[in-house]
Computed example of a mutant assay.
Amino acid sequence: MRVATWNINSLRLRLDLLRRLVQQEGPDVICLQEIKVEDSLFPLADLHALGYPHVRFHGMKGYNGVATLSKLPFRELDPTDWCGKGDCRHARVVLPGDVELHNFYVPAGGDIPDPAANAKFAHKLQFLDEMRDHFAAAPRAGGSAKGKAILVGDLNIAPLEEDVWSHKQLLSVVSHTPIEVEKLAAVQQAGKWVDAVRQVTPPPVKLYSWWSYRSADWTKNDRGRRLDHIWVTPSLAKRVRHATILKDMRGWTQPSDHVAVIVDLD
Rank of each mutant, 00 (worst) to 15 (best):
L95K: 06
L95Q: 02
C83G: 05
T80A: 09
R75E: 12
A116T: 13
A116G: 11
L69G: 08
G110D: 09
G97K: 12
K124Q: 00
E130I: 01
K85I: 06
H134S: 11
A119D: 11
A91K: 02
L128N: 00
F135L: 05
A91S: 11
G65C: 05
M60R: 15
A116M: 13
L101C: 11
E130Q: 08
P96R: 15
D111T: 11
C88S: 05
A67K: 09
P113Q: 13
D114A: 11
H134P: 02
V94I: 10
D133T: 00
P79H: 05
D87N: 09
V94E: 04
R92S: 10
L72S: 15
K71Y: 03
C83S: 01
L128K: 00
S70A: 08
R92W: 05
P115C: 06
D87G: 10
A116Q: 15
D133M: 04
A122E: 07
N118Y: 03
D87R: 13
P107N: 14
G84N: 12
K120S: 00
K120D: 00
W82P: 00
D81K: 11
V93F: 06
D81C: 11
Y63L: 11
A91M: 08
G97M: 09
N64K: 10
R75V: 14
F127T: 00
E100N: 13
A91V: 12
E130Y: 03
G62P: 02
E130H: 02
L101D: 07
G110S: 13
V106P: 04
E100D: 10
F135Y: 12
A117G: 06
R132E: 02
P79N: 07
E100S: 13
D129M: 09
H123L: 14
A119V: 12
G86I: 12
C88Q: 14
G97T: 04
W82Y: 07
L95I: 10
G84A: 15
G110E: 12
K61N: 01
R132V: 00
G109P: 01
R92M: 07
I112T: 15
P73K: 07
V99D: 04
V94H: 09
N118Q: 03
A91N: 05
F121K: 06
G109T: 02
G109Y: 02
D114K: 08
H123P: 02
D78L: 13
N103M: 03
P107D: 09
V66T: 11
F127V: 01
F104H: 14
G86L: 11
T68E: 00
N103S: 08
V94G: 01
H102D: 03
